[in-house]
């Protein structure tokens, strides 16, 4: 059940937006289970301190096994393409060699929470997908505007500190739907 973020307490440092963190694991037996039925709400937060509190008790993505995802989205945006904020947008997809997921995920979400992308209201949320081979980091935004997606890519390259020749790909959600990937 979703719970809205508490108001930042006295002395806490508010964030520009409130965020919610979700978890999903691919169900083994029941393949007909809908994507949203697998989504589990973990917590929402409104301040830097609330974020660290939650971040420190959840398992680091790199320490998880199997087919699992963390989704960190602005409060009010559900982590699925059908949401009004997402349906005309897309995502940067970054494939990570095993062993990099926890560090890259933390770098990405700190840049998002700290408003380092400088693209107005464009950022919707971020996902880390733990898979059997490479792990996948993605950053979702509202529109397909190329100026915006290029600016997001530049910031991603700066904040993630990725190994050279890391593959980055931008994909509109409508294209992911057509070729039946990601959803």
């Amino acid at each position: 059940a979703f719970r809205p973020a508490p108001k930042p307490g006295e002395g806490e440092h508010p964030l520009q937006y409130n965020y919610a963190i979700w978890f999903s694991r691919r169900s083994q037996g029941n393949k007909s289970m809908r994507y949203d039925q697998n989504l589990k709400f973990i917590a929402s937060f409104a301040s830097v301190e609330q974020f660290w509190n939650i971040h420190s008790y959840i398992v680091r993505p790199g320490d998880m096994s199997g087919h699992v995802d963390y989704h960190l989205f602005k409060e009010g945006i559900r982590p699925m393409w059908e949401d009004d904020a997402n349906k005309h947008g897309g995502k940067w997809i970054i494939r990570l060699k095993k062993g990099l997921a926890s560090r890259c995920w933390e770098n990405l979400i700190l840049a998002m929470l700290g408003e380092q992308f400088m693209v107005g209201e464009e950022i919707c949320g971020a996902v880390i997908s733990i898979r059997f081979q490479d792990d996948i980091l993605s950053l979702w935004n509202r529109s397909n505007d190329q100026t915006i997606t290029s600016r997001i890519r530049d910031t991603l390259q700066r904040v993630l500190n990725l190994p050279p020749n890391t593959i980055m790909e931008y994909k509109a959600h409508t294209d992911s739907l057509k070729d039946n990937t990601s959803f």
């Binding site: 307490g9 002395g11 806490e12 301190e49 509190n53 700190l110 929470l113 700290g114 380092q116």
Partner: peptide, 21 residues
């Protein structure tokens, strides 16, 4: 209005605040 911006080092610093425990 003004955006609330934090760089990485500031967020890491606040991780150690007693309020973040």
């Amino acid at each position: 209005g003004t955006r609330i911006v934090y760089d990485r080092s500031r967020l890491m610093q606040l991780r150690n605040s007693p309020l973040a425990k």
